[in-house]
Nucleic acid binder design. Structure first.
Lengths: 167, 167
DNA sequence: CGCCATGTGATATAAGATAACACTATGGCT
DNA sequence: AGCCATAGTGTTATCTTATATCACATGGCG
């Protein structure tokens, strides 16, 4: 199986180390502000999730932890991920059973995701009024929306080029 | 654990047997038309998925099959579900790892789902232009959408009443 | 100190999904 | 009818994803 965690790496396109360090910095600020404890475990897991822009499975995180010489079991990872989810630092990608860093933690937002089936990358977008539209229509049916999951799978522009028609 | 398969049953609200028989009838027509074989296994699995309006897990289907005296293993169920998915007779609910009957098979549609966390029921809706809107925005970013997953979780009107504020 | 809340470690197991291989049913063909 | 190819099924084993449970550690606070 392809190592999903690295497939989406695009170190040539941008300084990805920047993405990681920024994410950690934002997380530290946000936890400080909210009185939440960004422990060593949690920080490490967040870093690992941010290793690429492709969603990472919990067991991939586990492997990476172990490769870093840290003895960990599944609950360790899942607990860290749960914490990160609660604080909006990562999002869960339902169609992949995987997790990806949130570029804008802190701000409440109902995000949508574009998921490339070629390189695996996830791009978080927010289409204006979309979430609102769903809530409104649901309300008309008497349904109160709590959370939305909106994921579009397909091919990013680069992957369309490298895997053209009839591939 | 609550038996998800029965939670959503609303036999008092409507003649659910009608839902089931209609679904089977539509499936038979559609398979006839497409030259697909709705075998005994597949028909039975479709019936079982339609036992309620709540999405049903593959292993729940398996249990139900066994209670009906049919010796089956996971692949049997998954293969049937795969067939039904391919022909649009059921949809997969990603946020629940479960399957639900499609009320309008045959017509290509990018459906959205309202999923009640109270009774478990799933309601398929189609908000006009929503899918289009996502495709368009994705296209602006050079992304070609193949499939969309749109699921809103919350409470249906009935469950809002039975589990009011601060529950 | 004693207590409680929060976080962690470790083991076991639940829940969901698929791989692989052998066998059977079905429909088309000569 | 007999033969073949394809599609469908049965069976076993295994893989992936996710939690339950219990024991231990740490840190704040009366």
């Amino acid at each position: 199986m392809a190592t999903r965690a690295t497939v989406g790496l695009r170190l040539k396109d941008h300084d990805h180390h920047h993405c990681i360090s920024d994410a950690i910095a934002r997380a530290e600020m946000l936890c400080q502000r909210n009185g939440a404890r960004l422990t060593e475990n949690r920080r490490r897991v967040l870093e690992l999730v941010w290793q690429s822009h492709a969603p990472v499975g919990a067991y991939e995180v586990l492997e990476m932890l172990r490769k870093d010489g840290i003895r960990a079991a599944p609950p360790t990872v899942y607990r860290a991920l749960e914490f990160l989810l609660e604080h909006g630092l990562v999002h869960r990608i339902e169609t992949r059973n995987a997790f990806v860093g949130c570029p804008q933690p802190g701000q409440a937002h109902a995000a949508q995701y574009l998921l490339c089936d070629g390189c695996g990358d996830a791009v978080e977008i927010e289409i204006g009024g979309l979430a609102r539209r769903i809530e409104t229509r649901a309300a008309e049916l008497g349904f109160a929306v709590a959370t939305q999951t909106i994921e579009a799978r397909g091919l990013c522009s680069r992957c369309q080029q490298s895997a053209p028609a009839g591939a």
